[in-house]
Design a protein around this nucleic acid. Structure first.
Lengths: 181, 181
DNA sequence: GTCTATAACCGGATAGAC
DNA sequence: GTCTATCCGGTTATAGAC
């Protein structure tokens, strides 16, 4: 059962943008791999930026939800642990794992993209919700780092002898520890 | 006392590459800001890549030295603590702080640059030296993360009410803690 | 929904004068 | 050491046929 063209464009773009970077990937490459011409892409997306927008809008929504959730709860150790858990599940879900990697690797190239600006903003807000406002600096950095530890495992353990699942559990363990104290 | 042109090109390029990204920065922009024409740059550097090479070669040397040092010592908790301390001092030295930020932000765009490939390689080797080969995954991730914690502080505490020095000390504290256990 | 053709432009890079 | 002038190729994007 054939996927529609729009979805296939998104898949190819996501892969190339992640592997080579946004700027280094031309619409011609995307079109070529899809087996159509460059011009055909313009039927589906207004601009190159628009392809990015379509990829990351869902991720923004998820972060908004996560942020709303954490704000609906008391600032407590339990909330923080559950936030880490939810965030870990979120970036693990197959659909968004690719998006997360794409975002990690194109921060600079897409620094002016409206949706990306909002996503960065939400991440900053999330890291501020994960600490007490008056906490000492080291504690705040430590807590914030907990979220990034969940991303770090994948590219730290690179050509690993470890399974996906082992890395995931190890990252969670490190993240929880960063929340203590 | 006027700096020589070569040095000024490096300064401007470093700033623009860091702010906008390597690909988004054209030689025309660099030349314009310097007050010369694009063609004039080619007297000082063979290619755009060459400007990058001139910026990062010193950093590669430093990492090589750090790696040689850590390998000359026993794999012990003391060595690891001192490595973290040395690494922290290294990325704090004003000359290289800018280079470190440039490297962080252009990983994807410069994924094929020979010097950058070597730098990544050294970082991986450094993270492998900082753990016992047989250590459990969570410990290895935790130790590796210690080095990255030193980078993280700066962009986590963004529009900070904290001084440079406070952030530095807080980052070190978090890094040391990541080495324990 | 996809095509061809093309506009309009900008990128890195080079040749050769001064 | 810097200039002008130019080449060549690639880029996004549009117009209009099918």
């Amino acid at each position: 059962m054939r996927e529609d063209t729009r979805t296939r464009i998104q898949e190819i773009a996501l892969r190339l943008f992640t592997e080579q970077g946004y700027e280094a990937t031309s619409l011609r490459e995307i079109a070529e791999e899809l087996g159509v011409t460059k011009a055909a892409l313009y039927y589906h997306f207004k601009t190159k930026d628009d392809i990015v927008a379509s990829l990351v809008e869902q991720r923004l929504t998820e972060l908004d939800e996560l942020l709303a959730w954490v704000r609906s709860r008391p600032r407590s150790p339990e909330t923080r642990r559950e936030l880490v858990e939810r965030y870990a599940d979120n970036i693990r879900a197959t659909r968004h794992l690719g998006i997360a990697r794409f975002l990690e690797r194109n921060q600079t190239a897409l620094r002016d993209h409206p949706t990306l600006i909002k996503i960065r903003e939400r991440m900053m807000q999330l890291t501020s919700e994960i600490s007490e406002p008056g906490a000492p600096p080291a504690e705040r950095i430590s807590h914030s780092l907990a979220l990034f530890a969940l991303h770090a495992g994948k590219w730290l353990m690179k050509e690993g002898e470890l399974s996906e699942e082992e890395i995931h559990k190890a990252c969670l363990e490190v993240a929880y520890r960063l929340l203590e104290r």
